[in-house]
């Protein structure tokens, strides 16, 4: 497969994963603003923006940047920032738009059904503004957008040829998921420390954002304990939204890609991912459940390893120089 095509598939998949995640953020947060305590709503917004490493547009004008200023924003402004703000690279519409641009570049290698599905999802949102949906039930719009994107992924699953392109698509999805989940949990521990015994609802909403609520309830029906939720989202590899599962899929997809590389072994090492998997498997269970700092340090290690791996993928498979050595 042409390297640029693989790169487009990889990034299309990452943008799609990000768009779904932000849709879930908003669906969940817009549900919360109806009946949650004021403080929880504020911390909920803070969790979202921390996990995306972003400050809302205009927050630089605040008197003390870095303070907890989410109270000063209204839900409409924050939602608009996450959904339609042109300067926010993680805004849903921007992610969809970039994914569609990626798809446009590779229309000759993806199925017609994939293109049509993504193009229609994009066209439906193209001229939409928050004002158009705010008076109705805005959370439904984001829930529907999430369904449209998941439908696209279902079509990918059903129609895409299982060549290396498919594995790059898989790679993109799970690299993004590992990064987003690590970042989200990190933001959760910042906004709702585990020692905060009143944060049960926040852990419940975290599971909702990760689309892991119902499974978690089946395994832990009694109450939302932070430590159980953390274990479930980090190291339970049977859950498709856990970090462990994402790393497992990354390793699996890369094993196929590396085997196809003409010169063996490939210069792209999955050792960083291996180390991250080892940490989750062998060190995570021995952690002090009360020590949020240690947990966050582990998650940062996993995120850094995933980022390093992603950079290697870019340089080894997408942007490599053509030399005698490469041609031989």
């Amino acid at each position: 497969m042409l390297s640029r095509d693989a790169q487009n598939l990889y990034w299309m998949s990452r943008y799609i994963e990000r768009a779904v995640q932000v849709c879930r953020f908003l669906t969940n947060q817009l549900d919360a603003i109806h009946d949650s305590p004021h403080d929880d709503i504020e911390r909920g917004w803070k969790r979202i923006f921390l996990s995306l490493n972003r400050q809302p547009a205009g927050s630089g004008l605040m008197p003390n940047p870095g303070d907890d200023y989410f109270m000063l924003f209204d839900a409409y402004t924050l939602t608009d920032d996450l959904a339609f703000e042109p300067s926010n690279p993680d805004a849903i519409f921007n992610c969809l738009s970039k994914a569609r641009e990626n798809a446009r570049q590779i229309r000759s290698v993806i199925s017609h059904e994939m293109w049509t599905s993504l193009n229609v999802a994009f066209l439906d949102k193209k001229d939409l503004r928050l004002l158009d949906i705010w008076e109705e039930r805005p959370r439904d719009s984001f829930a529907n957008a999430s369904i449209a994107v998941e439908t696209f992924r279902g079509i990918v699953e059903a129609t895409m040829y299982r060549d290396s392109g498919w594995h790059f698509f898989r790679l993109g999805r799970f690299v993004e998921r590992a990064l987003l989940t690590c970042s989200l949990i990190d933001a959760q521990l910042e906004a709702f420390p585990t020692r905060d015994s009143s944060a049960g609802e926040a852990w419940s909403s975290l599971l909702n954002i990760c689309a892991a609520q119902s499974t978690f309830r089946r395994l832990h029906p009694m109450e939302y304990m932070a430590t159980h939720a953390l274990d479930f989202l980090v190291c339970d590899s049977r859950s498709p939204n856990s970090v462990a599962h994402a790393l497992q899929e990354i390793a699996g997809a890369h094993a196929v890609i590396a085997a196809e590389w003409r010169r063996s072994p490939t210069r792209c090492s999955d050792r960083p991912v291996g180390r991250a998997r080892a940490l989750i498997e062998y060190e995570w269970p021995d952690r002090d459940p009360e020590d949020d700092a240690a947990v966050r340090s582990m998650l940062n290690f996993v995120a850094d390893a995933t980022r390093k791996f992603s950079e290697d993928v870019e340089s080894v498979y997408f942007n490599y120089p053509i030399t005698d050595d490469a041609i031989a």
């Binding site: 497969m1 042409l2 590389w261 053509i322 005698d324 490469a326 041609i327």
Partner: peptide, 17 residues
Amino acid sequence: DLTVHKGFVYMRTTRGP
């Protein structure tokens, strides 16, 4: 996506040039 190397044209693929 293309490079000329020693008078031949190559394209960059995920399996090598």
